[in-house]
Amino acid sequence: MGYFNPWSVVVGLVIPFVAVVGGVAVLGRSEAVVLGMPLVYFWVFLWFVLTTLCLAASWYLFDRGDFEDEEEV
């Protein structure tokens, strides 16, 4: 039996890592500008918000049930 929920790992860990590390690798040299920011800066700032949403999704969709006893306090 795995002890992390695999879907939670995909949403909460794999997606942010691939998006940030992969995104920086692909967009790091781009000369595009978004909202006044070079694309690579915009991308990482965007993932500040999206990573938070990913972790919220992991918690509310997959992991919360395993911790329900702690929620009572």
Binding site: F4, S8, V9, G12, L13, P16, F17, V20, V21, V24, G28, P38, V40, Y41, V44, F45, W47, F48, T51, C54, L55, S58, W59
Partner: peptide
């Protein structure tokens, strides 16, 4: 830019690691 992206990138990704 490599320094700036490294700095904000590692702190951002530290929290998904910490979550698990």
């Amino acid at each position: 830019a490599g320094y700036g992206i490294w700095f904000v990138g590692y702190i951002l990704l530290a929290y998904p690691v910490g979550y698990f």
